[in-house]
Amino acid sequence: MDAATIALNNFEIHLQKNPYPGRGLVVGRSAVEDAWLIVYWIMGRSASSRNRQFVIEGSTLRTEPIDSSKMEDPSLLIYEAMLELPNVYLVSNGDQTRTIADLLQAGSSFDSALATREREPDAPNYTPRISAMLELQPSPAITLSILKANPFNPDLTDRFAYRPATPAPGFGVGLTTYQGDGNPLPSFHGDPLLLPLQGSQEYVLEAYWHALNVENLVSLAVKQISNVDGSSHIMVRNRYSA
């Protein structure tokens, strides 16, 4: 089976036909520009989870409440989802984005930064923390991580790191928090997914927006990063807004 078929199958099974993949990220290469793309989305079943939107501040993407008076517990819902350092681009589904950025600036590593964190403390789901780093220098490299509750003792965290080969233009590698809907929600399992990134930045945003479950999708963003000078641009779409 070729890469295009695998990517489309993953897109259909894990995203289009999956009512609740939860939060998700994809990092890969544009098919039409000399650029990289980072896709990130959030989903929500509760009123509090849906009371959010993406906000762009320069090169940073963050979540913010639409109505602060209705935000029950912001600790796992409000965070910086995308941050940049020189030649380094970060994305995650929680405040570990800031942990990674701060420790990288202090001279530590991606793995060491995440060694200080655990899966989310939201029993009984114990939502995985998914994170990714794109480095452009000295040569492009992608690192992904998922921190999950141990299936036999959820007080413990299983840690998985992946360093896939650079994907071909038009493809990316991704993780989601959940395998599907359920109670409790089943954590994502297996290797990162090969997924399509065909078309322009706007096309990719539209493709993922229309693929994800309309009832549960909250916000989606696509960051495009120039492979020439490292400059970036973020596009977002919010289902709910003030």
Rank of each mutant, 00 (worst) to 15 (best):
I56G: 03
Y40H: 12
P65W: 06
M82N: 11
A101I: 00
N93Y: 01
Y126F: 14
T116K: 08
E120N: 14
P121Y: 03
S109I: 06
N51H: 08
E64W: 11
V39T: 03
E120S: 14
E118H: 15
D95T: 13
A47K: 14
T60K: 01
M71Y: 05
I56K: 08
P121G: 03
D95S: 15
T97V: 02
S108P: 01
V88E: 10
M43A: 06
N87I: 04
T99Q: 08
I66G: 10
T116L: 09
S112F: 09
R119K: 14
T99V: 14
M43H: 03
A106I: 05
L76Y: 11
M82P: 10
P65A: 11
W41P: 03
R98S: 15
D95Y: 14
E80R: 15
I56Y: 06
M71D: 07
D102G: 09
S59W: 10
V55S: 14
P128V: 01
I100P: 07
D102T: 08
R50I: 02
E118V: 10
F110V: 00
G107L: 06
Y89S: 00
A101P: 00
P124K: 00
T116V: 01
W41R: 01
R62H: 11
P65H: 04
A113Y: 07
G44E: 00
I56C: 05
D122G: 02
A47W: 11
R45P: 02
A115D: 14
R117S: 13
G107V: 05
I56M: 05
P65D: 07
D67K: 14
I100G: 04
L90V: 04
D73K: 12
N87K: 13
G58R: 11
L76P: 05
P86M: 10
D102K: 13
P74K: 03
I66P: 12
D95V: 07
P121H: 05
A115Y: 11
R45S: 13
P124L: 00
S68D: 14
A101C: 02
S46Q: 06
L90K: 03
I66D: 09
Q96L: 06
D122V: 01
N93T: 08
A123Y: 13
M71K: 05
M82W: 09
I100L: 08
I100K: 06
R50W: 03
T127P: 09
L103N: 09
D102M: 12
I100N: 04
E84W: 10
S48D: 15
L77C: 08
R119P: 02
M43R: 01
K70P: 09
A115V: 01
T60N: 00
G44L: 01
R62N: 03
S59C: 12
D102C: 08
G94Q: 00
G58W: 13
V39A: 03
